[in-house]
C-alpha cells in the first residue's frame, strides 16, 4: 500500500512545488496519475520512490514511513535510462540481484516469468546499448521488478511502446497485482492509463488531485 498525506516539496531551482494532500493506493492495485508534459510527474515519482529525500508530509510504503532502509521494497522505473549501456542484460541483472541480496540462481526463473509478457530471452547476452526504445522499455520493467518489490512506481509506462504493447503492460500489471504488488503509474497518455489502472488521479502544475 502507498499512503501519502500532506506531501509538499519545493523545487526552488525550477520555481515549482509538488503538492499532494491525500493519495492512497491499496495493496495489489494500479493507480494512474495523469498529467501533461512538465506537470511534475517525474519529480513526484522521484519523491515517492525516495530518490528525492527532503519533503514535508508523510509517505508510507506498506504501513511504514519511507526511508532508505525500504529501498528493497520499491521498484522504480524512471523515464530516462539509468542502466549501464555497456553491460549485457545478464550482467546488469546479476549485478542488481547481488545488490538486492537475491540469489543469482533466480535470474533464469525471472527471465522465464517475464517472458510470458514479452520474450526477452534473446536479449540476455546483448548489450543494453544495442536495444531499441521499445525493447529497452520492457527491459526496464524487468529490471525494476528483479528484486520482487512490493511497490512499483513507473514514470511514463508506455514510453517507446506501440499501441499493441499496452495489452502487454496491462497483463503485466494484472500479474504483479495478483502477487500483491502495488503499482503507481504516471503518464501523459490518459487513454492508455485508463485501460490499465483501477483509479486515476490528475497532476496539474505539481498539484495531485
Amino acid at each position: 500500500m502507498i499512503k501519502i498525506r500532506d506531501l509538499k516539496r519545493n523545487f526552488q531551482e525550477y520555481d515549482f512545488e509538488i503538492n499532494c494532500q491525500n493519495l492512497t493506493v491499496d495493496t495489489g492495485t494500479v493507480c494512474g496519475v495523469c498529467g501533461r508534459t512538465a506537470s511534475g510527474k517525474t519529480l513526484f515519482s522521484q519523491v515517492v520512490s525516495g530518490v528525492i529525500k527532503k519533503y514535508s508530509g508523510s509517505i508510507e510504503i506498506g504501513m511504514t514511513e519511507l526511508s532508505s532502509t525500504y529501498r528493497r521494497k520499491i521498484g522504480y522505473l524512471p523515464f530516462k535510462n539509468i542502466l549501464y549501456n555497456d553491460l549485457t542484460l545478464k550482467e546488469m541483472s546479476l549485478f542488481l540481484l547481488t545488490q538486492y541480496k537475491v540469489p543469482e540462481s533466480e535470474f533464469g526463473l525471472k527471465i522465464e516469468w517475464f517472458s510470458q509478457f514479452y520474450d526477452i530471452k534473446d536479449f540476455v547476452e546483448r548489450r543494453i546499448s544495442s536495444l531499441s526504445d521499445g525493447q529497452l522499455q520492457y527491459i526496464k520493467y524487468f529490471i525494476s521488478l528483479i528484486h520482487s518489490p512490493s511497490v512499483l512506481i513507473i514514470d511514463e509506462p508506455f514510453n517507446g511502446l506501440g499501441d499493441e504493447s499496452v495489452d502487454h503492460v496491462r497483463s503485466l500489471f494484472e500479474e504483479v497485482n495478483r502477487k500483491g504488488v502495488t503499482v503507481l503509474a504516471l503518464s501523459s497518455h490518459e487513454d492508455h492509463l485508463k485501460k490499465s489502472a483501477g483509479s486515476i488521479h490528475y497532476i496539474i502544475e505539481g498539484k495531485i488531485e
Binding site: S49, S68, R72, I82, L83
Partner: peptide, 19 residues
C-alpha cells in the same frame, strides 16, 4: 562518466551511493 544516470540507480539500491 558512465554513472551520469546511474547514480539515480545507486539511490534505489540499499546503501547504493556508498557502494
Amino acid at each position: 562518466s558512465k554513472e551520469k544516470g546511474s547514480f539515480l540507480l545507486a539511490s534505489l539500491i540499499p546503501f547504493g551511493e556508498s557502494t
